[in-house]
Each structure stands twice: as structure tokens, then as C-alpha cells.
Amino acid sequence: MSPEQKKFLKNLKLTKYKVIFLQIAILVIFLGLWEFLTFKGIISPFIYSSPSKIFSTIIDLIHSHNFFIHIYITLKEVLIAFFLGISLGFIIALILYEWKFLAKVIDPYLTMFNSLPKVALGPLIIIAGGANIKSVILMALLINLIISIITIYNGFLCTDEYCFKLFKTLHATKLQTLLYLVIPNSYQTIITSLKLCLSQTLVGVLMGEFLVSKQGIGYLIVYGKQVFNLNIVMSGIIILALISYILYKFITILEKKLLKHI
């Protein structure tokens, strides 16, 4: 290896370390400042809590409030709603793609439903489904399904005309064209729709838990608000941020695998 190449690789590594260092530094400074300002009373510790209080609250929650059950419930709702949303979205997008006539017919309804703030349906869902996990999942599904359908369907539509011609010259059947061309060609959009679906699912689940649930992080936040313990509210938010970060990370790993060569 030439000295220049060595230097180049070294620089590359150095940049990577710098980025990680700064990321950690930002977190430490943020938490430190937060702790300091609330400790000094410059901002109200009652409203904004503080890192140390959040930490002790989480320990406390684990002991007294079955904290892990709340996490488990929320995670379960998110995962079920996410996979349902993505797979139903995929199937419906496929049906619309294969049956363009139907797609044309229901287009205005899709648009209308897409722009409707689905939260408005919340009260309806509670009365119809009751205060349980199913209602929360239904709420999330209402929010994430439409966006999954629309993005995946548009991904299918983006297939290259020229590749279609190639498949025609090879006398491919409709199913083969779908399996070897249309679907693999949409990997990029499918990944995008996974990301969109995940964020929409989190919104839906939280919304659902706010409205109906007796368990879950959303419930914990509402509970914290009701008893004026904002440490609980903050702890809920922090855990939620962690969960969404980890789930998002899974999707990026999948993305790297799937799109390696494209």
C-alpha cells in the first residue's frame, strides 16, 4: 500500500471517529446543560424534569409500575400494526397495480382518505372496538395503511418501460414480470414505505394509547400528566425515542442489505 493510500484510509477513519465523538459530545452537553439548568432552577424542574430525575423515575417505574409491561405492550402494538400495515399495503398495492381499472375508480377515495386526519376517527374506534389493544392497533393501521398503499403502488408504477419491453421479448408471463421485474425494481420505494409506515405506526399507536388504553407507554404519559408527575411523562418520551430509533435502525440495516448493488 502506498503512503498516500495509507494516509487516505487514515483520514477516512479519523473522520468517522470525529463524527462519533461529536455525536456523544452533543448528547453529554445536552444532558449536562439540562441537569444544570434545572438544578439551578433557571428552568422549572417541575415541568422539564431533569436527566437524574428521569433516571430515578425509570428505576422507580421498573419496581413499582411494571415498566417493562408497558414497553412490551407498546412494542407489541407497534410491531403488529407495522407488519399488518406493510403487508396489507403491499397486497392492496399489488391488486391495484394488476387491476388498473379498480385503481382508477377508487383513486378519489384514496386521496380523500389520505388527507383526512385519521385521529378524528378515534372516538368512533373506542366505541366500536372498546378500550383494548385491538383498538390501538386498528387506530395505527388506519394511519399507516393508506401511506403504505400509496407509496408501494407508486413504486410499482415506476418500473422502467424499457425493461418491460425486454421481458416482452423474452416472452415472460405476467407473474414472472411481477416477480423478477416489478417487485425487485421497487425495493427502493418499499424501503421508503417501511420508514414512512414505521413513523406513522408510532403516531397511530401513541394516539390510540392516549385515547383508549390501560397499558403502554402512551398510557404512562397520560397517567403522568393526570397525576402531575412530569418525570413520568419525560421518561415515557425518552423510552419512546429509543424504541423508534432502534426500529428505524433495523430498517436501515435491511436497506443496506437489499440495495447493496443498486
Binding site: D160, Y162, L166, F167, Q176, P184, Y187, H261
Partner: peptide, 22 residues
């Protein structure tokens, strides 16, 4: 055809045998 229209997500070899596979 005028353009090779190779599928980016298949290897060169998989592209070459696509016609046979189909």
C-alpha cells in the same frame, strides 16, 4: 434491443441466464 436493459439487482451471470430462466 438497443439498450442492454440489465437488471441492476441481478449479477452479470444471473442477467445472462434470465432468458433461459423465464
Amino acid at each position: 434491443l438497443q439498450n442492454a436493459a440489465l437488471l441492476p439487482y441481478l449479477t452479470i451471470y444471473e442477467n445472462a441466464i434470465l432468458g433461459l430462466k423465464i
